[in-house]
Amino acid sequence: MNITFMQLLSGMVVSVEIFLLTLLFALPLGLLVAFGRMSKNKILQTLVKVYIAIMRGTPLMLQLIVVYFAPFYIFGLKISQGYRFVAVIIAFSINYAAYFAEIYRAGIESIPIGQYEAAEVLGYSKRQTFFRIIFPQVIKRILPPVTNETITLVKDTSLAFVIAVAEMFTIAKQISAKQASVNALMVAGLFYFVFNYAVAYIMEFFEKKLSYYR
């Protein structure tokens, strides 16, 4: 019983790691992708469009498998045990970056042109205009869709089971098969629920913090 509990706990830790690392990489990467998507350079813009279309148009589970086996099939490399986790982080990051990019883009495009013009006349540089004037307003506007994506991400971490990464769902499934009982799966379900509750709570905190202006 104790061992089972420790196993579940280690699964939880891996799930939380996948979640946090994905956000850490995908949020900034998504902003870069959004810049590429809005670039005046047609070639870059088209490449990024194709990338986003693939990421959004194919199952994340398939992308996980592709990223995991790519080193072997493309480069003939032997896949090491440690690469499993890395593959999950890569696949999740590039997938979520595509979704975040579209959220950033919608947010950036929703800022009135007058904000840019006011900043230009006041002498702000392009960089200052973006980081001082535009981006803070974008963050406020995109918090609700980012919350949605983040909640989806919590549940999506369970997809890592497809390449046998020992996260929460993978372990719960193993235990439950061994015990011929759904208890472990119930615990997993509760875990995802509580995790999402915490995420929603934190995001609501940020939304409140930014509600001092309209």
Partner: peptide, 28 residues
């Protein structure tokens, strides 16, 4: 030169004071 717009174009995330001092501090 300066320009005053028809629809103000104030920066909504800055207080009144910050709207006024942000450019003098960060541009000049």
């Amino acid at each position: 030169f300066g320009l005053v717009f028809q629809n103000f174009n104030l920066f909504p995330h800055y207080s009144v004071l910050k709207n006024i001092i942000d450019a003098p501090v960060n541009v000049l």
